[in-house]
């Protein structure tokens, strides 16, 4: 088994997921439109009631929604992995000479491609509603890099959960749980506006670290309490995904191997 074979397997399996998109354009389009709808809802329906101290609510919201979009990919990944197990595709692949690494890496790679498309749609939406990156191209690219880095960590949580849960029905639980995790962050409002203990959880949510860090890199309104987590948001946005990956990547590999026990 050479590295070249492993890479080709990864490319083959990633290509499979991309072919799924071509055959299911409507569900892909709906998945991409969902965060756009949320921008419109929060920006225009609730946005009037939101007072951001140092700027427009929409300029605070867009980076938050970019971070949220990274989280929303999780359930599609979990559903797709459980569907493979339920349909016997996982076992067929396991009975073939394909490495564990290629099976898992292709999931992450395909999901990252999905995330990049999702980011493109959301950035375009942001620009259409008047949001801009104020600090130039390089910090903006760094911000996008932090978002993809967060999604990379989430792909391993999703892969682990997908292998753990096994049936598409139980994956619905992930769809429900994504919401409190997403809202209990600084994506939509400052944690300073929340009751103390909730604010504390929201401040340390990995999603908040990335949202706050990219607000800084985009030069958008920060609306935070100036606490330690907020001041070190870029470091946290680098560190959190590293920690999550270090925990969930080995768990995903272990769970895949456990299919043979």
């Amino acid at each position: 088994m050479t590295t070249a074979t492993a890479l080709r397997d990864t490319a083959t399996l990633t290509g499979r997921v991309l072919r799924h998109w071509r055959r299911r354009p409507v569900s892909i389009a709906l998945g991409l439109m969902f965060p756009v709808l949320m921008v419109l809802m929060f920006g225009y329906l609730f946005g009037g009631a939101m007072a951001v101290p140092d700027g427009r609510y929409l300029d605070f919201l867009i980076p938050g929604m970019l971070a949220m979009t990274m989280l929303f990919g999780l359930e599609a990944l979990v559903v797709s992995i459980t569907a493979d197990t339920a349909k016997g595709v996982t076992d067929r692949v396991r009975a073939m000479p394909v490495t564990t690494g290629a099976v898992l890496a292709s999931r992450s790679a395909a999901d990252l491609l999905n995330a990049v498309v999702g980011l493109g749609v959301m950035v375009a939406t942001g620009l259409l509603v008047g949001w801009t990156a104020q600090r130039g191209v390089l910090p903006a690219l760094a911000a996008l890099g932090l978002l993809v880095w967060l999604r990379f960590a989430f792909t391993w949580i999703g892969t682990y959960l997908g292998l753990l849960l096994k049936t598409p029905e139980s994956a619905v639980a992930v769809q429900v749980l994504v919401w409190p995790v997403g809202f209990l962050s600084s994506a939509f409002v400052s944690p300073a506006t929340m009751p103390d203990w909730l604010g504390l959880v929201a401040t340390w949510n990995p999603l908040s670290a990335t949202a706050t860090a990219i607000r800084e890199l985009f030069g958008n309104p920060a609306w935070h309490d100036g606490g330690w987590a907020a001041r070190h948001s870029v470091a946290l946005a680098l560190l959190w995904p590293a920690v999550l990956t270090a925990v969930f990547l080995p768990l995903a590999v272990r769970q895949y191997r456990a299919l043979g026990r």
Binding site: R16, R24, G88, R92
Partner: peptide
């Protein structure tokens, strides 16, 4: 026992 092919493709 059950068909194990990719249903989408």
């Amino acid at each position: 026992q059950d068909t194990s092919v990719d249903e989408v493709l």
